[in-house]
C-alpha cells in the first residue's frame, strides 16, 4: 500500500477561521508613557506636513484553497492545507496625486502536519504549491504557518519599499528589527495600553491629531514607539471611533520617531474611508481596501482553483 494524497471535499474554510492577533497583550507589555511628554500632562498634538513625497500602503490577503490529507499506511491520515497568499503595495505619489498598485505578489503553499511533506502536483500554469510542514498534529498550527508566512512576506516588502524611500504604512503591528520608515497601522483597538488618566487625551483628539508617543516592549526584548491618532470625527460615534493606533521601530531616536508620527498623523485622515462605502470605516484606508480587492482577484477564482486541485491530485499515488 502506498501513500496517497486526497483533496477533502469539505469546504476549505470549514473550521474556525483564524484571525491574526499580534497585538501585544497589555498584561505582558511594559508601557512607558512619558518618553515624549516628559511628565507634562498629555495634550493632543497636531500632525504637520513634512513634505512626504510618497506613501506605500502594504496589505495582504490569504485563502485556504483546499484541505488535503495524506493517506499514509503507517501514520494514518495526515492533515494539510493548500493556501494562497497575495500581498502587495499601493504607492501614493503626493505630487502627481495618484495612486498605483505598485507591487502585487502571489505565493501558494501546501502545509502538512506531523512533519510530513509531499509534493502537490501542479494544478495549472500558475498553480504551483510549495510544500512545507509543521511538526505538530494540531490543525490550528497549519493556519498559524499561513499567518506567519503572510507577515513575513509583508514585512519584507515593507522594508524593501522603505529602502526605496517611501513612507510605508504596514497593515498591523510591525516587526521592529530594522530602523526603517515603516509605520504599523492598527485599525481596531482591542487592547488598552493607556492607564485611565491618559484616556481623556484620546477622547480629545481631533482629526489629524495624535497623542504623545509612548513606548512599549514585550518581555523586554524590543521596544516600539506607539501613538493614537484620530482620522475623522464620527457623528454619533463613541470617543474611540475614528481612532487608529500606529507604531514604529524603537530603534529610532525620539525626534525621528516624533517626526514620523507627526507626518503620518497629518497624512492619514486624507485616506480615511467613508462609512457608507466601507464597513470598517474610517480605519480601513481607501488605498488598502482597493489593494485588498485587487489581491483577492489575483488569488484566482476559488471554485476554479479548488476544482483544478481536485483534478490534479485525484488520488495521486505519491513518490
Amino acid at each position: 500500500m502506498r501513500r496517497r494524497l486526497y483533496v477533502e471535499n469539505w469546504a476549505p474554510h470549514y473550521g474556525s477561521p483564524f484571525e491574526a492577533d499580534d497585538e501585544v497583550s497589555p498584561a505582558t507589555a511594559e508601557v512607558q508613557l512619558e518618553v515624549e511628554s516628559k511628565g507634562k500632562p498629555w495634550q493632543p498634538r497636531a500632525g504637520y506636513d513634512g513634505g512626504v513625497e510618497s506613501i506605500a500602503f502594504i496589505d495582504g490577503v490569504r485563502r485556504i484553497d483546499a484541505r488535503v490529507t495524506i493517506d499514509d499506511p503507517e501514520l494514518g491520515p495526515v492533515p494539510g492545507i493548500c493556501i494562497s497568499l497575495a500581498y502587495g503595495a499601493v504607492i501614493w505619489d503626493a505630487r502627481a496625486r495618484r495612486s498605483e498598485i505598485a507591487e502585487a505578489r502571489v505565493q501558494r503553499l501546501a502545509i502538512f502536519a506531523q512533519g510530513q511533506s509531499v509534493a502537490v502536483p501542479q494544478a495549472g500554469p500558475t498553480l504551483r504549491y510549495r510544500s512545507e510542514s509543521v511538526p505538530t498534529s494540531d490543525p490550528a498550527a497549519l493556519t498559524t504557518v499561513m499567518q506567519t508566512r503572510m507577515r513575513q512576506a509583508e514585512g519584507e516588502l515593507g522594508r524593501e519599499l522603505a529602502r526605496r524611500g517611501h513612507l510605508v504604512i504596514a497593515d498591523g503591528p510591525i516587526h521592529p528589527l530594522e530602523p526603517a520608515s515603516v509605520v504599523g497601522y492598527i485599525k481596531s483597538q482591542r487592547a488598552a495600553y493607556l492607564p485611565p488618566e491618559k484616556v481623556p487625551c484620546v477622547a480629545a483628539l481631533g482629526p489629524g491629531e495624535r497623542t504623545p508617543l509612548f513606548v512599549f516592549s514585550s518581555g523586554g526584548s524590543f521596544a516600539r514607539y506607539s501613538w493614537y491618532t484620530r482620522l475623522e470625527d464620527i457623528e454619533h460615534g463613541h470617543t474611540w471611533s475614528g481612532v487608529a493606533r500606529c507604531e514604529c521601530t524603537g530603534a529610532f531616536a525620539l525626534e525621528d520617531a516624533s517626526r514620523l508620527a507627526d507626518e503620518t498623523t497629518f497624512l492619514l485622515p486624507r485616506f480615511a474611508s467613508a462609512a457608507h462605502i466601507e464597513a470598517r470605516a474610517p480605519q480601513n484606508l481607501v488605498p488598502v481596501a482597493a489593494l485588498e480587492r485587487h489581491l483577492r482577484r489575483l488569488l484566482g477564482d476559488q471554485a476554479l482553483v479548488y476544482r483544478a486541485l481536485c483534478a490534479a491530485v485525484a488520488g495521486t499515488p505519491l513518490r
Binding site: 499601493v90 496625486r97 495618484r98 495612486s99 486624507r270 485616506f271 462605502i277 481607501v286 482597493a290 485587487h294
Partner: peptide, 20 residues
C-alpha cells in the same frame, strides 16, 4: 476600473488616494 462607487471618481482623480 476599481471604482465601485460614483464618489470614487473624486478619490481617484482629485485626491489620488484610490488606485484605479
Amino acid at each position: 476600473e476599481g471604482a465601485t462607487f460614483e464618489s470614487d471618481t473624486h478619490r481617484i482623480a482629485a485626491d489620488g488616494i484610490l488606485p484605479a
